[in-house]
Design a protein around this nucleic acid. Structure first.
Length: 742
DNA sequence: CTGGAGGTTCTTTTT
DNA sequence: GAACCTCCAG
């Protein structure tokens, strides 16, 4: 059980009695430690499998952990709970739903659903979408829930008119959710915490059951998840989201469970969804008798790659110093490439993958391409298709986010839960059946007045005033259709097929002239085969189970499986890449404004998060790392000239081997981005903005002749430092300064 | 009620 | 350059 572990790993596996924090640098074998720890608990410490709860963030991580434990100890592992935060909470909530006023087959709303619902609520409250954007409201409510703030508290805390409006929308939104017998992603966590706090007997049940709680990627937990862990472990002290200590009234009736968390503050990249690095930094304060074990030996990458990663992350302030090391030798240098534009960059990647296959025995399956934003995947797809390179884009416009897929799922959801108003209204006129906005509004008003659900309103449509006969007939037909479908006792996949046929959805797509409809049909068939697979894997599975699984899939769950990733190049965002490793990694789009992202440039804290993202990206590579940037990149349809990413300069130059002359495109560094709308920047209108790089000679209207010393900043904010002789250097905004290039 | 024209926003990152 | 909204004619 302890074979092949280094001393620190061994300590972590056998540690006993007090809370344990494993600070696991990238590639330091943390999954190995976790799985061995579980196996050790079972075989040496006589812990029962059902007493173990191991929590991860993605299904993929959970699945991998489960498989590896299985390999160590065999089928006994089945009784353990190894799952994501969200699945674990759903499992608990389904059992106890009644206590919170939900049915056990409640729907789960993803981000798109909750945005739709929030849009409905905002319209109902008559809010001007310009001043109160529903998307922003939806995001803010999500943030509140991540901090366990309910709408009453939000209302009490509200200072401004905007905050009061938000609290109002929050209340209304939550009421609609409950009426629809639905929970959003954030509710899954928050309501589980509420459940434990409101019903001590439920909390105690789970505390008695789970004597060992393990949490992976602890640096990515938000406040709600932090509290959930506290509740599960059963420690009476906790703190609020603001860091204030609180002591709950109860004393633990059950001895606290043994807690073991694994994480790495340098890989915290989810602050935007409420993750707080404080959870890991202050673990020792939260759990006073905690032990911390550091894993610094890296088994993944060459020393060159690690040195680059160490140098970059060292620029972040206030972090605990950590130095990854490897005994694998230096390996090849990091290769840098400056492309003329994004097409050139993608072409370079494609050619390099080919070359590696020919010269270095590297297969496409060993290669990954990372980018900052999903939108960047397009160019790679175009070029890879043209060059015939096999690839798979992970995430992006996800399968389950496609319109037709959501439509079919919405039908299924309505069949499982008639109160699911968001889904019901989504499909009420899809395909077109003559129930328009007006008819829908009439029904809504009627349902509201009669205090019945929207579905009930539809069923009683003949009592609703103001409906045109034509609309009424259409509604009657629609209701009959759904009731007929609901009455059918069909296996899942056949039910899905039946929905497509009886609604006319399939016929509509088949007979339309739109070439895109062909791929829509393919997607629907794909969904039906997903349903078939589900049936085969879960003979007992219900429609509700299927819908739940579909709601909780993550991007990372779709990564091609196996060591060779089925022979294809894997393309994904840096966020999705966390936790993975590849022999060859291309880190693309290293431009200020792209990566680090434009919106982080002014914010030191966000910039540090971008840097951690860079650290995550670099440390995915095992053997070879490529870094590339494009001098010109079109975004939003118009070209942008971005300077080199500051992260490139943070990689020690002796580790980097530039494939092309960086001077070649240096001119672009200082070029001002083309104005997006010709009218917008009136001040610069008509004037030719000089593109400058260090060494250029310029003249200034008042300061006279000078030499460019440095260029910094992006786009309109590009500043140049110019030496006008006599020792005085001036920093000027290129866009406004009266300078001319000589 | 539908569909097309025209305008607007959008891009961080995700369970 | 796509996906979404709004407005208006038929």
């Amino acid at each position: 059980m302890l074979d092949g572990l280094n001393p620190q790993q061994r300590d972590a596996v056998v540690h006993e009695g007090t809370p344990l924090l494993i600070v696991a640098g990238a590639g330091s074998g943390k999954t190995r430690v976790l799985t061995h720890r579980i196996a050790y608990l079972l075989s040496e410490r006589h812990v029962q499998p059902q007493e173990i709860l191991a929590i991860t963030f993605t299904n993929k991580a959970a699945k991998e952990m489960k498989e590896r434990v299985d390999r160590l100890i065999g089928p006994r592992s089945k009784a353990m709970w190894v799952m994501t935060f969200h699945s674990a909470c759903v499992r608990i909530l389904r059992r106890e739903a009644k206590r919170l006023g939900f049915s056990s087959s409640f729907s789960i709303y993803d981000q798109a659903d909750s945005q739709r619902l929030m849009a409905m609520v905002c319209r109902e409250l008559d809010l001007d979408p310009k001043r109160y954007p529903p998307r922003s409201f939806s995001a803010q409510v999500s943030n509140l829930k991540n901090e366990l703030v309910d709408y009453d508290t939000a209302k009490d805390k509200a200072q401004t008119h905007l905050e009061r409006t938000l609290a109002e929308a929050y209340r209304s939104y939550q009421r609609r959710l409950t009426e629809a017998d639905a929970m959003d992603f954030d509710d899954l966590i928050m309501l589980t915490v509420t459940l434990f706090q409101l019903f001590p007997d439920v909390a105690e049940h789970y505390r008695r059951r789970f004597r060992h709680v393990m949490v992976d990627e602890y640096q990515d937990t938000n406040h709600a998840q932090y509290m959930l862990i506290r509740e599960l472990v059963g420690v009476p002290e906790a703190r609020t989201a603001d860091g204030e200590p609180v002591r709950e009234g109860r004393e633990g009736a059950v001895e606290p469970a043994e807690l073991c968390v694994v994480g790495d503050a340098d890989q915290s990249i989810y602050a935007f969804r409420g993750a707080t690095i404080r959870n890991i930094l202050e673990f020792e304060r939260d759990y006073p008798d905690a032990r911390t074990i550091l894993l610094e030996q890296n088994y993944r990458s060459t020393q060159t790659i690690l040195s680059a990663a160490n140098a970059v992350i060292a620029r972040n302030e206030g972090r605990k110093p950590k130095n990854l090391w490897s005994d694998q030798g230096a390996g090849p240098k990091i290769i840098g490439y400056v492309a003329d534009n994004e097409h050139d960059e993608a072409m370079f990647v494609a050619q390099e993958v080919d070359r590696l296959a020919d010269d270095e025995d590297v297969t496409p399956g060993q290669v990954a391409v990372f980018y900052r934003t999903n939108a960047a995947s397009r160019v790679f797809e175009e070029i890879f298709i043209r060059t015939g390179l096999p690839y798979k884009v992970v995430g992006g416009v996800r399968f389950y986010e496609r319109k037709e897929v959501r439509d079919l799922l919405a039908y299924l959801r309505v069949l499982a839960n008639p109160n699911d108003t968001v889904s019901l209204r989504r499909v009420i006129n899809v395909p077109k059946r003559g129930i328009g906005d007006r008819a829908e509004a009439m029904i809504e008003a009627f349902a509201l007045r009669e205090r019945v659900s929207f579905w009930e309103g539809l069923r009683r449509a003949d009592e609703a005033p103001g409906l045109a006969t034509r609309s009424l007939n259409a509604i009657k037909e629609f209701v009959a259709l759904l009731e007929d479908l609901r009455g059918k006792e069909l296996p899942l996949s056949e039910l899905a097929e039946e929905v497509l046929t009886s609604t006319g959805y399939r016929t509509e797509l088949e007979t339309s002239g739109d070439p895109q409809d062909e791929s829509r049909l393919e997607n629907l068939n794909e969904l039906i085969s997903v349903a078939q697979e589900f049936e085969e894997a879960n003979p007992e599975g219900t429609l509700v189970d299927f819908l739940e699984q579909v709601s909780l899939v993550a991007d990372a769950d779709q990564i091609p499986e196996g060591e060779d990733h089925q022979g294809v190049v894997t393309l994904m965002t840096l966020h999705t890449a966390k936790g993975l490793e590849f022999p060859v990694v291309f880190l693309t789009g290293l431009e200020d404004g792209v990566f680090p992202h434009m919106r982080s440039l002014g914010e030191p804290r966000e910039l540090e998060e971008e840097r951690r993202l860079a650290y995550v990206g670099i440390t995915r590579a095992q053997q070879r790392l490529y870094v590339s940037r494009a001098a010109v990149r079109s975004s939003w349809g118009s070209p942008a000239f971005n300077p080199a990413s500051r992260f490139l300069a943070e990689v020690p130059s002796d580790l980097l081997d530039w494939r092309s002359d960086p001077q070649k495109t240096a001119w672009a560094a200082a070029t001002v981005r083309e104005p997006r709308r010709p009218a917008a920047p009136a001040k610069t209108g008509g004037r030719v903005i000089p593109s400058l790089s260090p060494g250029d000679r310029v003249t200034h209207d008042t300061f006279g002749l000078g030499t460019v010393v440095a260029v910094e900043g992006a786009a309109e904010k590009t500043r140049v430092k110019i030496d006008f002789g006599s020792g005085d250097e001036k920093t000027l905004l290129v866009a406004y300064a009266p300078i001319e290039k000589l």
